Simulated assay, not measured.
Amino acid sequence: MTHTLLNHRAEGPASAPPLLLGPSLGTSHALWDKVAPELSITHRVVCWDLPGHGDSSESTARLISAGATVADLAALVLELADALGMQRFAYAGVSLGGAVGLHLALHHPERVSSLAVICSSAHFNGAKAWTERAALVRREGLAGLAESADARWFTQGFTVPRLVDDHRRANPDAYAACCDALATFDLSDRLTEITVPTLAVAGREDPATPPAHLREIADSVPGAALVEIPGASHLAPAECPEAVLTALSTLLSGGVRRGMEVRREVLGDAHVDRAQSRQTAFTAPFQDFISRYAWGEIWTDPTLTRRERSMITMTALIAHGHYDELATHVRAARRNGLTPQEIGAVLLQTAVYCGVPAANSAFATAQQVLAEDDEGRA
């Protein structure tokens, strides 16, 4: 029997860095309709729905029950990411979706490359209001509560009918269970433990999670930034999509900047400058991909040292006969601390597993590079 996953929508290149977008209580992935298409140019964007919400509200309602916690929702998000092959991802979430992001960043930092907490909080004003709302919804359903959605979500005169309809059609038991999760959520005393690059985004007109809540996150999470959006209430991505897109793009582009830093540290300024000087409008997307993904995601992963990555990279290049690239990475290996003897040991290992002719060519390439390196040091 196939395990039911959270309902979701994916867009963007499958090879692009993954980005998960989380919803607010009562909404669906339609919350991101004006933002996700732009983000999908550079990322594999996955918008997920809360259990019992969105187009598959009845089939996913079983994923959550009374007494649920934000940790339970975070576990469902990780199951979805695992099923999609997303080992590490950027994350942005609104309100309850933002709370899920904070939990992931605190408890699973190895999975989250960056975090945007939008119109959300480290605590949602105590349990009383949420337990009362949960009881109301279990007793009367969502029709009445949906009537006040515009006032809770948007500035006066603004609405998104699709989102209000999503609120009305959500599964009441699942919605109430999400209220249970909000009632017990409080990470205010653990924000200083979060190490993931974090951005807090506040709507200045937001009555549910006022700017002070986002300021608390920005002041407590080391290195976090704060953006306040004028004219935005609780569902900023729907009401002020351009401002949210600008804020997210700034956060997400940090991978490109860090990737370029690591690329220069490993390959050297001269090599990167040559590559950049040859860049054209045609090759620019590829150069961006290399800096963002290979150097900004893979080479910055702390699981392996740069020495280890150099050895793996040289082996892979020899296996595929990429000797021009091998020359570049022999130089990189020296920069990453490998001795000529260690490089020779790696090449000798490839003679067994990649073939003697491949290793022979590799030794010739490496010998030339090391000789040039010796001349340069003389």
Rank of each mutant, 00 (worst) to 15 (best):
A236W: 01
L199N: 02
T246S: 11
A202G: 04
P237Y: 10
I290Q: 14
L187S: 01
Q276P: 00
H213I: 04
L235H: 00
E239H: 10
R274C: 06
T300Q: 12
P222T: 05
P211Q: 01
A281C: 07
P211H: 00
E265I: 02
R278L: 12
L226M: 08
P241E: 12
A225Q: 15
R306I: 04
L187K: 01
G268W: 00
G255Y: 12
P207H: 09
H213Q: 12
A247V: 01
A224W: 01
E242F: 10
A232P: 08
F289C: 07
E308L: 05
L245W: 00
P285S: 03
L251F: 06
L199W: 05
L187Y: 11
L304E: 12
S188T: 10
R306C: 05
E193G: 07
E228V: 02
P237H: 10
A284N: 15
T250N: 13
P241L: 11
D186A: 05
L199E: 02
T283C: 11
T209Y: 09
R309V: 14
T192Y: 05
A247L: 02
A238Q: 03
V201Q: 00
T300N: 09
T250P: 07
M260H: 08
I290L: 15
T250R: 14
T192K: 09
D269I: 00
S220G: 01
A225N: 14
